[in-house]
């Protein structure tokens, strides 16, 4: 529970650091990319923090190269 709150707090801190400059520059695209990445980051950290087993991204590479590797 504490870890989730901590992760949300870190996410809020990042918003407070970056969003004012982004809004001043009026760059919509950048704001979009920032939001998507941040939501992804917070979600991923919460999932890991709650102890859910996440498959390694290396598995994907393994599957792609599977036929070539003996």
């Amino acid at each position: 529970m504490w870890s989730v709150l901590l992760i949300l707090a870190v996410g809020m801190a990042i918003i407070m650091i970056d969003v004012p400059t982004l809004r001043r520059n009026k760059s919509r695209k950048e704001l979009w990319a920032f939001s998507v990445l941040l939501i992804g980051g917070v979600a991923l950290n919460i999932v890991v923090g709650l102890g859910v087993e996440v498959p390694s991204p290396l598995e994907l590479i393994k599957i792609i190269y599977g036929p070539i590797v003996r």
Binding site: V10, I14, K29, A33, G41, V48
Partner: peptide
Amino acid sequence: LNLPDYRSLVLPLGMILYAVAYFIVP
């Protein structure tokens, strides 16, 4: 993504990096 500046992506991507580093190798 054709963004003018990279700086705003550093912190969110760092957060993803932190999570992925935990489960990348079992």
